[in-house]
Design a protein around this nucleic acid. Structure first.
Lengths: 222, 222
DNA sequence: TGCAAATAAATGACCGGTCAGTTATATACG
DNA sequence: CGTATATAACTGACCGGTCATTTATTTGCA
């Protein structure tokens, strides 16, 4: 169909485009990838990665299944892009906080409050839970997550603890052990709330402060 | 041939009955369910519940695919039976230990050593990880797991803490918060080792003792 | 022989991914 | 402007293959 009678038209268009400093190609397409990732997250939460259907993801984003493949080359790629997108904002926050760690105790509480708010949201927790569920099948994704999120978060807390030790505020403990105790409590409450759906105060403000205080003060009287 | 009679539903009922009436001649049949559950666990670990193929489970148990359905009426039933089977031994241990809680500190370390050994094994951790990955789709299974495992383990630790408080050994803290700090650390190390595959000392003896000591003593100098 | 155990083959639903064709939008030009 | 043209964006039917579950058949043991 549409046999082109004019061949120089293409050349002219190309020249014009190169002269134009601002691109005119604009439509809904700019927003599509993000909309698709939002839809994918919802479907993955509801059904898990394997059982989530590409067609349902598409429908949720008001698109046809075929269109999904204009933006992502496979379902797995969709998962990868989703995780990468969700990871970056977390990083910015953690790194930022660990940097100005004047007072370790105060900074721990600050981080705690921020982390507590994030952890309380099901959509936030969905990513780590997704990582857990696909860990055995996509090792590269796990490596990425460990390197970009887990390692940096843990290192941040460890750095804080080391500083506290140097300042003489903390006992000379293994920084890894301290990070484990501090972060572990958050993990516990998050899994309790979002996976087991047990009774929890995770939504209430300050619940994490009490955890941090407990770890700082210790359980045992001396 | 013989008499087809067609009665597929009756097979399920006949299964239970045959297990009771058989005396000695059904040697293999007695062992089959357990062998299948072992095989299912391995496949679920490797592929996850959704991607695990019934045929692979059957082959791993040296059986044909069809034979699986002589013992379990569906793949989901296989999962349910597996979780139920793996859960009971854990319970026995935890309950037993919490009962004779003469000295809270010593008992915590005792539980810690046992839990530490269990947690270090990938096959043990596989069940909770499986529960996490199917939590949104099989809420009844989660309810079962919460009631039979999570709640009882947590209650056991809480009871121990309460006893410690009553004896004047521990500060008057929220027992839930204490359980969170104690169990959370185990959770953290387990996920770090088995999901993220990061560097860990989870295999080494006594790694959990250091965690418990840290929580008991506190991080901060006073 | 008779019956339970086990297998092999069949069935049918499901789904990721593809692609020829359609619609919407931007550009060219008179 | 209005019309022609180019192309970006999208659709939906379809294919190839997988896989849980069922049915038909064989095997082995008392």
């Amino acid at each position: 169909m549409t046999s082109p009678r004019k061949s120089p038209a293409r050349k002219a268009a190309a020249r014009k485009a190169s002269l134009e400093t601002t691109r005119k190609w604009r439509r809904r397409a700019q927003a599509r990838p993000d909309e698709l990732l939002d839809a994918a997250l919802d479907e993955f939460i509801a059904k898990g990665f394997d059982s989530a259907r590409v067609e349902d993801i598409a429908r949720r984003a008001s698109l046809s299944k075929g269109a999904v493949y204009l933006y992502f080359k496979s379902k797995e790629e969709l998962l990868r892009a989703l995780i990468e997108r969700e990871v970056s904002p977390v990083l910015a926050r953690v790194g930022e906080m660990a940097r100005n760690a004047e007072d370790p105790r105060a900074t721990l509480h600050l981080i705690g409050r921020t982390a507590g708010a994030a952890i309380a949201q099901p959509r936030f927790m969905a990513i780590p839970l997704l990582v857990i569920s696909i860990a055995n099948r996509f090792p590269e994704l796990v490596d990425f997550y460990r390197g970009e999120v887990a390692m940096k978060a843990k290192s941040g807390v460890e750095a804080l603890v080391k500083r506290g030790i140097k300042l003489g505020q903390f006992h000379k403990v293994d920084p890894h052990a301290a990070a484990r105790a501090l972060i572990g409590g958050i993990l516990f409450e998050a899994l309790w709330a979002h996976v087991l759906r047990g009774p929890t105060k995770i939504g209430a403000p300050g619940w994490l402060d009490s955890h941090i205080d407990l770890v700082l003060n210790g359980l045992e009287k001396r």
